[in-house]
Nucleic acid binder design. Structure first.
Length: 490
RNA sequence: GGUUCCUUGGCCGAGUGGCUUAGGCACUGGUCUGCAAAACCAGGUACGGCGGUUCGAAUCCGCCAGGAACCUCCA
């Protein structure tokens, strides 16, 4: 029985029942990073949100083609005309070849996403590798009369587009309002109208990243790559387009306009936008310079961090909030997330050791229903997690002998806990730093714990406590249970 | 100025017309334990302000206050 998935569509500003264009298949496009800086907490949010979505879709038996681009060209620093390419700027700054910058930060991005247990997308196309496709889209738009060349650059004619297609359907803006309120910027002489956006930019002589075209040696405008690449890999119309809320306007609005002209239809049926992570109530982002990189989180190497936080803590922290809400960063919140996660993962570990009874006094089927309903309701991971903590309660109660579970129920229960915790939420057990030494370490600790048990048997409390306290000083947590003591590293 | 949105208990964070004790963390009491930790049980604190609609609103409407995002590159 397949559950029905509801997702909030930015186009309608409502939750809608998800129906894929092709049965059992989903085409998903998500705007990826511009690789000119280290990945920060803000990058983790869309990555984890859409990782959760693909994991859920897979669980629901959809075959997902997930395309997430790498922007390595065409993102301009300021307004389209006088701006400088970000990658080129960084390259100049660090005296590197632009592709060196791209390569370095792409690898960093992959590294950190994989630490967060974010699965690699199906295809990860780069803007620089799709110049030809982008030029083709520009030609198509010019041929249809919605773009014009000016001084070697090509611009999209928003005013003309708006005459027969509403420009602003996604963001809820009106062209008239935009006209009245768009700031007058320098160097717009090339454009017929301030709202027009660049499809192709003629490169200034000192500009390093350039490609030949019939208009000029230049580079594609920054909205274009997503249109060209989504079309190439997902077709003219696909299911879901995702990205951060900050891309809603103008980026996604422009994508819709370009693709609508190019293909005669709007590219995506569902538009999903994740909200921002805030710090002190403000968006954490590049422009404000208030971001904390993932490396800094993992090492604790930042003024605002009281200590290091593990990748799974970060993942759990993000999943504990709904993706459409802002999430405020804070040490207290992160530490709370860490403890909650530990409690959950401890229980997952204990789940493997539960003893079954003839009958059950737990309702694991109802629990599964609740979990599924929650996550299928526009990815409500906070509710799902709340439900999973009910599962934790069951595990601990059975372990403590206060509740009973049958063999049959336990199989079902394990299956559901594994599915939601590991497969869908993508949480994984984090082993201590020296995973290779774990086995030996375990033997040594158990040796000590056995000595402690002996001491306890002899009522030598001083010795027993000494062993425990010394171990604790070294960072080991000793838990006395009914069947002897267990340990873990803090 | 325009567009969109937010304001929940000590903290993070769900919820939506009538009992959700949401959940996590923190806190308090109890059970267990030689003591502690863990676990289990129990407990408290809440819906920015003012009006309105309603039998009933934290949930719908209006106004006010405060905040955010977007309108320039950002996830």
């Amino acid at each position: 029985m397949k559950n029905q998935l509801y997702i909030y569509n930015t186009l309608s500003r409502k939750k809608e029942l998800f129906k894929s264009i092709t049965p059992n298949r989903v085409g998903l496009y998500v705007c990826g990073p511009t690789v000119y800086g280290d990945p920060h907490l803000g990058h983790a949010r869309p990555a984890i949100t859409f990782d959760l979505l693909t994991r859920l879709l897979t669980y629901l038996d959809y075959k997902v083609r997930y395309v997430r681009n790498i922007t390595d060209v065409g993102h301009l620093e300021n307004d389209g005309d006088e701006g400088e390419d970000k990658i080129a700027k960084k390259a100049k700054l660090e005296e590197l070849e632009p592709m060196e910058v791209v390569h370095y930060y792409t690898e960093r991005y992959h590294d950190y996403m994989s630490k967060l247990n974010v699965k690699s997308p199906s295809i990860e196309p780069r803007a620089s590798g799709h110049i030809i496709e982008q030029i083709e889209v520009i030609k198509s738009i010019i041929n249809k009369g919605y773009a014009y060349e000016s001084n070697g650059s090509v611009y999209f004619d928003v005013k003309k587009y708006n005459q027969d297609h509403p420009y602003g359907i996604l963001s809820g803006r009106k062209v008239e309002d935009l006209m009245n309120n768009t700031r007058a910027l320098d160097g717009q002489s090339e454009k017929r109208d301030a709202l027009d956006f660049a499809l192709w930019k003629k490169a200034a002589p000192e500009h390093i990243m350039r490609w030949p075209s019939e208009w000029s040696d230049g580079f594609p405008g920054w909205h274009l790559e997503c249109s060209a690449m989504s079309k190439k890999y997902l077709g003219k119309e696909f299911d879901i387009h995702g990205g951060g809320m900050d891309l809603l306007f103008p980026h996604h609005e422009c994508e819709i306009a370009q693709s609508t002209i190019d293909n005669g239809k709007s590219p995506a049926r569902y538009w999903m936008h994740n909200n921002m992570i805030t710090i002190g109530g403000q968006k954490m982002g590049k422009s404000l310079g208030n971001f904390i990189t993932l490396e800094e989180f993992f090492t604790g190497n930042h003024d605002k961090l009281e200590r290091a936080y593990s990748p799974m803590t970060i993942r759990f922290f993000i999943l504990q909030a709904h993706y459409r809400s802002t999430l405020d960063f804070g040490n207290e919140a992160l530490q709370a997330a860490e403890k909650g996660l530990n409690k959950l993962m401890d229980a997952m570990n204990n789940l493997e050791q539960l003893v079954t009874s003839k009958e059950s006094d737990v309702d694991v089927k109802a629990l599964k229903e609740k979990c599924l309903t929650a996550i299928c309701d526009d990815l409500n991971s906070p509710i799902l997690i709340a439900n999973l903590f009910e599962g934790v309660k069951i595990i601990n109660s059975v372990l403590a002998g206060k509740q009973k579970i049958s063999e049959e129920d336990l199989v079902y229960f394990k299956d559901l806990m594994h599915a939601f915790v590991y497969d869908i939420l993508g949480l994984e057990v984090e082993t201590s730093q020296d995973a290779g030494n774990d086995e030996k370490l375990d033997e040594v600790i158990h040796l000590l714990l056995n000595m402690r048990t002996e001491a306890k048997a002899n009522k030598d409390w001083a010795m027993a406590d000494k062993i425990r306290d010394e171990l604790q000083n070294l960072g080991f947590i000793i838990k006395d249970g009914a069947e002897g003591a267990t340990w873990e590293l803090k």
